[in-house]
Every structure is written in C-alpha cells, then in structure tokens.
Simulated assay, not measured.
Amino acid sequence: MTPSTDPKVVLVTGASSGIGEATAGLLAERGHHVVLGARRTGRLKELTEAIRTAGGSAEYHPLDVTDAEQVRNFVDAARSRHGRVDVLVNNAGVMPLSKLEALRTDEWNRMIDVNVRGVLHGIAAALPVMRAQHHGQFVNVASIGAHQVSPTAAVYCATKYAVWAISEGLRQEVGGDIRVTTISPGVTESELAESISDPVGREEMRTYRSVAIPASSVGEAIAFAIDQPAAVDVSEIIVRPTAGQS
C-alpha cells in the first residue's frame, strides 16, 4: 500500500467497529495519525494497540457524540497534543429500523441524537479549529438512505438526508480553506443491524443485507477523498455493492 505523501491528524468517531474501525486502520497504514473515538473504550484500546503493533500511529479517547462537551474535549485533546486537526470523520451512527406505526419514539430520538446531533456536535467542535488554522476537512458519513427511502427506514433515512443537507450547506459556507466530503455507503458489513429491536425491521434488513460490501471498501473511499490535493474537494461519493440495487 502506497503511503500518503501528506500525513494528517485524522479524528474518527464511531471507531470501535464497522466503517470507523476499517477507516482508522486503513488511514494508519497509509501513514496518517488516527485518533479513535467511541463509547467502547476497551475495544478502542485493542484497535489502537493493533494499529501500533502494525507500525501505525494511533491514540484513542472515550466519546459519546450525543454529548457536545465530550466532542469538544475529543477535538481539543487532539489539537493540544498535535497542534492541529486536519480531518474529522463524522462516522458514528445507529440504525434501529421499524415501521412508523410501531411508534418506537425512543429509537427515533436516539437516531436523531446520534446521527444528526452527533454530526453537528463534531462540526461545532472542529470548525473553529479549522478556521483558525486555515485548513481542514470534514468527512461526514451519510448513507444510500440519504438518496432513497425504504419501508421501516423512514426516520433513519431522514437523519441521513439531514447529514447530506448539513454537509452540503457547510461546503458552500466554508469556502476554499476547508473541504467537506459526504460519503454515502450502500449496504455495508457492520454492526448497525444489531441495533434493530423491531422484528419487522430485522427481517427487512436481513433481506436487504443479502448482498453487502466490506467496511474496508468505504474506508478506501474516505482515504481517497482525504488524500486528494488541498485544492481538490471530493464533495460526495456513493459506494454500494455491484450486485443488488442498494
């Protein structure tokens, strides 16, 4: 694997599994320093040690993206230690699917808190830092659900459309110093489906996930966007299985 010619300090939320884990490992292999954030600190410790054993550079911090103060501390700790924050990958997300008629309002609120507010907390914490240093990049992980809606996924798709809309608005606002990339994965191997408590939603997802891409494929797309020259802003990438519709 060819190392990056411009190593960066990259913060990754939701880094304990799935896309976040794969992305952190891939970026570390390419010479970037990765800062892993998630709630499962035991898992983060294992991943950080594995990256270091393989010759990469990594650290981790406990992080609940629904807590704005924790997100600020996550960003501030990286800036204090390294003097800069080059990239924030807003990846943390949940997907407890169910039909609206199931009235799982607690799950709706959880998706809004993690998938939408979590991204906003990341922007609020990192944008002033990137403004002050006159460079930076946000990589916000949306979903194919930001572009199409399916039964049981109305609220999830709404949150991911919100991520797309927030990203596009941010891209237009920040101008030349800061880049904004939206990554919209199709069906991807991850633990997201484990959060589905509704039996109808679980069955829908079992069928939906019959064809899936590995999380590393999404990590490759993120790495591609990060490694472009500073004057190139890869605004959006959709990554999905060759087989299947989603």
Rank of each mutant, 00 (worst) to 15 (best):
M1Y: 10
K8R: 15
V9C: 13
V9S: 12
L11K: 07
V12G: 06
S17R: 13
I19L: 04
G20E: 08
A24H: 09
A24F: 07
G25I: 07
G25T: 12
L27I: 12
A28P: 14
H32D: 12
V34K: 08
V35L: 11
G37D: 02
T48M: 06
E49K: 11
E49H: 12
A50K: 15
R52T: 14
R52P: 10
G55F: 11
P62S: 10
P62M: 05
D64A: 02
T66Y: 00
Q70W: 01
R72P: 01
F74W: 05
A77C: 00
G83V: 05
R84Q: 11
R84I: 08
L88E: 02
N90T: 09
N91P: 06
A92W: 05
W108I: 05
M111L: 05
V114Q: 01
L127T: 00
L127Q: 02
P128G: 00
V129A: 04
Q133Y: 04
Q133C: 07
F138R: 01
F138N: 03
N140K: 03
N140Q: 01
A142D: 07
I144D: 08
I144R: 08
I144T: 11
P151T: 03
P151C: 05
A153F: 00
A154F: 01
V155T: 03
C157V: 00
K160R: 01
A162C: 01
A165V: 02
I166W: 07
I166P: 02
G169Y: 03
G169E: 02
D177T: 13
R179K: 09
V180S: 05
I183Q: 04
S184K: 03
S190H: 08
E191H: 13
L192Q: 08
E203W: 03
E204F: 15
R209W: 11
S210M: 14
A212N: 10
V218R: 05
V218N: 04
A225E: 05
Q228I: 11
Q228W: 06
E236H: 14
I237G: 04
T242Y: 13
A243D: 15
